[in-house]
Nucleic acid binder design. Sequence first.
DNA 1: CTACAGTCTGTAGCCGCTACAGACTCAAGC
DNA 2: GCTTGAGTCTGTAGCGGCTACAGACTGTAG
Lengths: 136, 136
Amino acid sequence: MTASGFQIGELSRRTGCNIETIRFYERIGLLPHPARRGRYRTYEDADAGRLAFIRRARELGFTLDEVRALLALAAGSAASCAEARALAAAHRLDVRERIADLKRMERTLGAHIRACEAGDNAACPLIESLRAPPGA
Amino acid sequence: MTASGFQIGELSRRTGCNIETIRFYERIGLLPHPARRGRYRTYEDADAGRLAFIRRARELGFTLDEVRALLALAAGSAASCAEARALAAAHRLDVRERIADLKRMERTLGAHIRACEAGDNAACPLIESLRAPPGA
DNA sequence: CTACAGTCTGTAGCCGCTACAGACTCAAGC
DNA sequence: GCTTGAGTCTGTAGCGGCTACAGACTGTAG
């Protein structure tokens, strides 16, 4: 209703999204080309809503392609619920894998650091363990 | 001792490192320019060792710059132990932060997915929660 | 002699931004 | 009216860490 018509700086302030990023999203078609007043982009509340949606999805780690899909689902019929859920579930699996990978790293790093702290050796155990096969 | 002198394909096989990546590492100065037999690169066992070191450090999530530093420490005096430990500890903090971030995502995703599964609403709760402020 | 695997160089692409340079517009203050 | 300054514009290049070509060459086996 409130078709305010504000500029990119204001949009940036409202959404916490970098101006350069907004223009980037426009370039790759994630945001529509806005109307112009002279040569300046003018946005409406709906644009802020769309961008906020994007930002929130990004904070959950969705890729831009996934965000695109989510936006399409959000614009579509109510039947898209299952699709959205599937998308989110697939993404959650991905996140879980990344967590598992990082945890493995964290454990190994911890072991190396502890060995290093306890080390009275001439050679640094941390560096030696990088030199040696990972089994060692 | 065994200065075998093998080609890039063999180095790739020994280390599990992609040929393109090996050349990339050479270009950015992470690996030295190897000797050539004709126009073909020839490697020694020491090169395989260095590359394996790099690979192991990468598997632990160290950036290439950190790997560079670790390589320098590995080549240096035994006194570099504390430095290596500091590097690894800083990196571990980083890894932990990334884990925490991902866990936050995972939890929120889970909440959204559950809401969506339980939803008898017309609107998809998952999509609605992206539309609404993150507090909601 | 030919086929084929391997290697070579150089360049461009991926993702998701971020950071400029250099031009312009627009409103306020003097 | 004129200047200053903040905001905006376009276009391009860079980050990290690879990966993927194209198109040329080499080296070996059949």
